[in-house]
Design a protein around this nucleic acid. Structure first.
Lengths: 340, 340
DNA sequence: CTGAAAGCGCTTACAG
DNA sequence: CTGAAAGCGCTTACAG
């Protein structure tokens, strides 16, 4: 049998109150005699007492748990963020429930409801942006929430994103400096602000350099079945713009898939092409030593998300749903690595 | 304010009992009039009622939550398993708490205690094998537990591993068939059974083919700081055995690091070397099209872990700590992809 | 210095 | 057909 406070109290012929004070470390504060404290602690150890945190949470209204919802746990970017969030949360005494929305709006809604029902103290979320009914509900209820990677301009939330436009701009500008004139962009889901901003940065770099933004150099690969889509997009680019001399990939996944394409088509990408990509994976430095990358600040994202969320959690009830709540928006710069 | 059963009961001048029956879907079973049921459901919707699952769990002793402890969430193998576990758990109405032990024994112990305190119904664990005090406690308490990736021969638990010896044997045998005679092994943490078995498979393949197991062809890279360690190990192999004509990497991480080495040393690994590796990452097929790989059955691992665990959870109390409990040990085969 | 009691929000025998 | 009551395992005013 599991031992409870009551068991210890009965064993020692004390009240649950006393046992509770001692075990929660507030024995001195309550002026409980050292002798009693020792007896209680020893008995707890002997009976291998472990507090039931569910009961504590039900009583205090605090679960010391935060919920993290990711579009995909197995994606390297999100799993790195998850790691940072977990470490930082643990440092503050919080543990983590993790769910994957699989980029499905309805799943995301379900996860949010589930987390609330399980009484998490707050939620960190990389939204799918497909359906936001439950997110809106969180906002309305002033539920502690931090959104990252993507955000909603029309919703009042804390959010953390990277400087998509600026990083893209600088990467592409670098390619231009290095002599590229016909730079293709390979991107995905353009309806996401993230991707839209990256495309905008690409366009600005070209325009500022007096280069045209040529639709023939635009490659789009829908996320579902992106393997073939990347191939198709690249085939189209090479057909319509055989003079292409640079590639800007808006995600690491697209870049990796492109490498497979180049390899299959026997194109030596490391010769005569300017290359740039958002987010880095270990293999990249071998696959394309000359690839210029914008490194996602996963540590900053994770740590800041937890910091913001805990700030909100502490303030709960205080400001609560007042309209003049302060929302922090963080636009983190990527670290740019120029390699060619 | 959050609405509770009591709020609905008062609003409708019913008892909490009635409301509870209706909302838990057992209204008909309890013979509650349709009219009342409708009123309750409508009221719940109107007041945006969400049950407090903590309270339910405290009452029923079931949290419908399972804990997953991984050596590292951001490693592609573990994060893929996490994804499978989450999907399968969700299918059965369970949610997931995830922690990373960072391969530290004490951290692992802390995580286990925390999960128990938070009343998870069971734990799935890829152990660090460093300190196992809490794991032993789980076993003693007949706490639902499934161990994967590594296991303890001296501990009675369910476990899931892959056929490390056999897969390694077949990979290396394949290299031999293809003509390699001086095959090096690059491995890590030899005290882990996993790695030991892989080394054993390598040795058996050589021995059966009448080839010597040459210490000069043995490369070991400790996990901490493995970047430099891999480099050092490979330098040593090339120095002592310049006639090396094949490489067997016991993990994808080692292989990726080795590619960086080869690239730095300007060695064309795709020419004249037999290559094999356990676990596959997307980049590999581009980096080394001729790499033979054993694919980890992440789906099988995840699904079976959940299945075994749920079996245990259902039986709790029944067999409980009886010594004649049945333990399932699953040795899953890897899918072998021969590419050269 | 210690304890009796109420309460967190549910579920579930038991009673009528 | 519906309800009063006890209990899950804690915490915490309040009292003495």
């Amino acid at each position: 049998m599991k031992t409870s406070l009551k068991d210890i109290a009965e064993e020692l012929r004390l009240s649950k109150t006393t046992v509770s004070w001692v075990l929660s470390g507030r024995g001195n504060e309550r002026g409980i005699s050292q002798a009693t404290q020792d007896r209680v602690k020893q008995c707890a150890r002997r009976m291998n007492y472990q507090p039931n945190l569910l009961a504590r949470s039900l009583n205090t209204g605090v679960s010391s748990t935060i919920g993290l919802i990711l579009p995909s746990i197995s994606d390297s970017f999100y799993s790195q963020v998850a790691r940072e969030v977990e470490m930082e949360a643990e440092r503050h005494g919080y543990s983590l429930m993790i769910c994957s929305s699989e980029s499905e709006g309805e799943r995301e809604n379900r996860m949010i409801r589930m987390f609330r029902a399980k009484q998490v103290d707050g939620i960190i979320l990389a939204p799918t942006k497909i359906s936001k009914t439950e997110i809106r509900q969180l906002v309305d209820d002033a539920f502690p929430l931090v959104v990252f990677d993507r955000y909603f301009s029309e919703l009042k939330t804390h959010y953390i994103i990277i400087d998509n436009e600026q990083s893209s701009y600088r990467l592409v500008s670098h390619l231009i400096e290095r002599g590229a004139r016909r730079i293709a962009i390979v991107t995905t889901n353009p309806h996401l602000t993230t991707m839209d901003q990256r495309r905008a940065g690409y366009a600005r770099a070209l325009t500022e350099a007096g280069l045209p933004v040529d639709p023939d150099l635009y490659g789009e690969a829908a996320f579902v079945g992106y393997e073939e889509n990347v191939f198709r997009a690249l085939d189209r680019i090479f057909a319509k713009a055989p003079d292409v001399d640079g590639f800007f990939f808006t995600t690491h996944i697209l870049a990796l898939e492109a490498f497979r394409y180049f390899h299959g088509r026997r194109i030596d990408i490391n010769d005569g092409y300017g290359l740039a990509c958002i987010h880095e994976v270990p293999a990249m430095s071998v696959l394309a030593p000359a690839m210029n990358v914008a490194r996602m600040p996963v540590g900053e994202i994770g740590r800041n998300a937890v910091r913001m969320l805990l700030g909100d959690i502490r303030n709960r009830g205080g400001l609560s749903r007042s309209a003049d709540r302060e929302f922090e928006s963080l636009v983190l710069p990527c670290e740019l690595c120029f390699r060619d």
